[in-house]
Lab assay of single mutants.
Amino acid sequence: TETRTFDSEEEAKKAQKEAEKQGRTVTITRRDDRWEVRFD
């Protein structure tokens, strides 16, 4: 599991799309003013 933090939802969604192309499961969580993206 890898976790990355982004400043914008746009960036988080971009990372999510990339990871899903690779067949990974992605979870996006809102953390205050940041977006946390978890790759499984």
Rank of each mutant, 00 (worst) to 15 (best):
T1N: 11
T1R: 10
T1Y: 15
T1A: 12
T1K: 08
E2F: 15
E2P: 08
E2A: 10
E2T: 12
E2V: 13
E2Q: 10
E2R: 08
E2N: 10
E2S: 10
E2H: 12
E2L: 13
T3L: 13
T3W: 13
T3M: 12
T3D: 04
T3Y: 14
T3N: 06
T3R: 05
T3A: 08
R4C: 13
R4W: 15
R4M: 15
R4K: 12
R4H: 11
R4D: 03
R4L: 15
R4Y: 14
R4N: 05
R4G: 04
T5Q: 08
T5F: 15
T5A: 06
T5R: 05
T5S: 10
T5K: 05
T5E: 09
T5D: 05
T5Y: 15
T5I: 15
F6A: 01
F6K: 01
F6E: 01
F6I: 01
F6V: 03
F6Y: 14
F6N: 01
F6W: 02
D7K: 09
D7W: 13
D7S: 11
D7H: 10
D7P: 08
D7T: 09
D7Q: 09
D7E: 10
S8P: 00
S8E: 03
S8F: 04
S8M: 03
S8R: 04
S8L: 04
S8K: 05
S8T: 15
S8A: 03
S8V: 03
E9F: 15
E9V: 06
E9G: 02
E9T: 02
E9L: 15
E9A: 06
E9Q: 06
E9S: 03
E9Y: 15
E9H: 09
E9I: 10
E9K: 04
E10R: 06
E10S: 07
E10K: 07
E10D: 09
E10P: 04
E10C: 05
E11K: 06
E11Q: 07
E11I: 03
E11D: 11
E11T: 03
E11G: 07
E11N: 04
E11S: 06
E11F: 03
A12G: 01
A12Q: 00
A12E: 00
A12R: 00
A12V: 04
A12Y: 02
A12H: 00
A12I: 01
A12T: 02
K13H: 08
K13F: 11
K13R: 13
K13T: 09
K13A: 06
K13V: 14
K13L: 15
K13Q: 10
K13S: 06
K13M: 12
K13D: 05
K14Y: 11
K14D: 11
K14Q: 14
K14N: 12
K14I: 12
K14V: 11
K14R: 13
K14L: 14
A15P: 00
A15D: 02
A15Q: 04
A15T: 04
A15K: 02
A15R: 02
A15N: 03
A15M: 09
Q16P: 00
Q16M: 14
Q16V: 14
Q16Y: 10
Q16R: 08
Q16I: 11
Q16C: 14
Q16E: 06
K17Y: 13
K17R: 13
K17W: 12
K17Q: 13
K17T: 11
K17P: 00
K17I: 14
K17D: 11
E18D: 10
E18V: 08
E18H: 07
E18Y: 07
E18W: 10
E18P: 01
E18R: 06
A19V: 03
A19E: 05
A19K: 02
A19T: 02
A19S: 04
A19G: 09
A19P: 00
A19F: 13
A19M: 12
A19Q: 04
A19W: 13
E20L: 11
E20H: 07
E20F: 07
E20K: 06
E20V: 08
E20R: 07
E20Q: 10
E20P: 01
K21A: 15
K21W: 08
K21Q: 13
K21R: 12
K21S: 14
K21L: 14
K21D: 14
Q22S: 11
Q22E: 14
Q22T: 09
Q22Y: 12
Q22K: 08
Q22D: 12
Q22N: 13
Q22W: 11
G23P: 01
G23M: 03
G23K: 03
G23A: 02
G23Y: 04
G23I: 01
G23Q: 03
G23V: 01
G23L: 02
R24W: 15
R24K: 14
R24E: 05
R24D: 04
R24M: 15
R24Y: 15
R24L: 15
R24P: 02
R24V: 14
R24I: 15
T25L: 11
T25I: 12
T25K: 14
T25W: 10
T25G: 06
T25H: 14
T25R: 14
T25Y: 12
T25A: 09
T25F: 12
V26K: 00
V26L: 03
V26C: 13
V26H: 02
V26F: 02
V26P: 04
V26N: 02
V26G: 09
T27E: 06
T27G: 02
T27R: 06
T27I: 11
T27A: 05
T27V: 10
T27C: 07
T27M: 06
T27D: 04
T27Q: 07
T27F: 07
T27Y: 08
T27S: 09
I28F: 01
I28W: 00
I28M: 05
I28S: 01
I28Q: 01
I28P: 01
I28G: 00
I28Y: 02
I28E: 00
I28N: 01
I28C: 03
T29G: 05
T29N: 07
T29I: 14
T29F: 10
T29D: 04
T29R: 08
T29E: 09
T29V: 14
T29M: 09
R30Y: 14
R30L: 13
R30A: 07
R30F: 15
R30Q: 14
R30E: 07
R30N: 07
R30H: 12
R31A: 07
R31S: 07
R31N: 08
R31L: 14
R31E: 05
R31Y: 12
R31V: 15
R31G: 03
R31F: 12
R31H: 11
R31W: 07
R31D: 04
D32N: 13
D32K: 09
D32M: 06
D32A: 11
D32S: 06
D32Q: 10
D32G: 15
D32F: 08
D32L: 07
D32I: 05
D33M: 05
D33Y: 04
D33N: 13
D33C: 10
D33S: 08
D33A: 05
D33W: 03
D33G: 15
D33P: 02
R34G: 12
R34K: 15
R34W: 09
R34H: 13
R34M: 13
R34A: 08
R34T: 11
R34P: 01
R34E: 05
R34I: 14
R34V: 15
R34N: 05
W35G: 00
W35P: 00
W35T: 00
W35N: 00
W35D: 01
W35M: 00
W35Y: 05
W35L: 01
W35H: 01
E36W: 05
E36Y: 09
E36M: 06
E36R: 01
E36N: 02
E36F: 08
E36Q: 05
E36I: 14
E36T: 05
E36K: 01
V37E: 00
V37I: 10
V37A: 03
V37K: 01
V37L: 13
R38P: 01
R38V: 12
R38S: 11
R38A: 10
R38Y: 08
R38I: 11
R38L: 08
R38T: 14
R38K: 11
R38H: 12
R38W: 07
R38E: 07
F39H: 03
F39W: 11
F39E: 05
F39I: 15
F39V: 10
F39C: 09
F39R: 02
F39N: 03
F39Q: 04
F39T: 06
F39Y: 14
F39G: 03
D40H: 13
D40K: 06
D40R: 06
D40Q: 11
D40M: 12
D40P: 05
